[in-house]
Design a protein around this nucleic acid. Structure first.
Length: 204
DNA sequence: TGAAGGATTTGT
DNA sequence: CAAATCCTTCAC
């Protein structure tokens, strides 16, 4: 199966409030085709929502060069550099002109990424645990900012597996909602979601 | 033009 | 708890 044959979530799937897309993204698969052609897949297990009236949102005050993509149409990648070291990947959500996004905080990879760092411990479930480590593992940086979430961008999402609802109903998976991490504003908004069964989720 | 600080991670 | 490290934002 080539990337173009894959089922991917279309732009209008993201055309909803970030507080809807964030929990609905849990269980979906983030797919990244590396520059060398290798394809990495990871199940999304932790997300956060950022909305226009949210003090913690980059677009809360006004549109700037950095946050401009959040103001655009949904289904686009918003990638920014944090602390001069790490990149963070967001999915732009909601209608064109409504600046909001979903931060992808953790993945469960199904494959060990190549050449991370020879000293990286081979704990597969920890490699994409955290927004900065996730981008490092998938080789995501600002060159992907403003790219559509589409196979032609080498970065896209795939829907939840067909047995997703059954896994929730059977208690095999548990989706939890709570407050976000690392913020100085909007600390009480319960806009973080995670699979409580996952070992990749940020500790709290 | 400069200074402060950040949606992180790691090690002390 | 502080360092790493650099880009963005805001004040002057």
């Amino acid at each position: 199966m080539t990337p173009a044959d894959s089922t991917f979530l279309p732009a209008d799937w993201f055309a909803r409030p970030a507080t809807d897309v964030a929990p609905d993204s849990i269980g979906c698969t983030l797919v990244r085709e590396l520059p060398n052609g290798q394809i990495l897949r990871g199940r999304i297990v932790e997300t956060e929502a950022y909305t226009p009236d949210d003090p913690a949102c980059h677009a809360y005050r006004r549109q700037t060069q950095r946050n401009a993509v959040m103001f655009g149409p949904p289904g686009i990648a918003y990638v920014y550099l944090i602390y001069g070291i790490y990149h963070c990947l967001n999915l732009v959500t909601d209608a064109d002109g409504v600046p909001s996004a979903v931060l992808i905080r953790a993945l469960e990879l199904d494959t060990l990424p190549p050449s991370l760092d020879l000293a990286t411990p081979p704990k597969l479930h920890r490699i994409a645990a955290g927004p900065g480590k996730l981008c490092r593992a998938l080789q995501i940086d600002r060159s992907l900012n403003a790219h559509p979430l589409h196979p032609s961008s080498s970065l896209w999402l795939e829907p939840r597996p067909t047995n997703w609802q059954h896994q929730l109903d059977s208690g095999h998976l548990t989706l939890t909602q709570t407050t976000r991490i690392g913020l100085t504003q909007g600390v009480d908004l319960p806009w973080r979601w995670y699979l409580s069964n996952s070992a990749a989720v940020s500790k709290r």
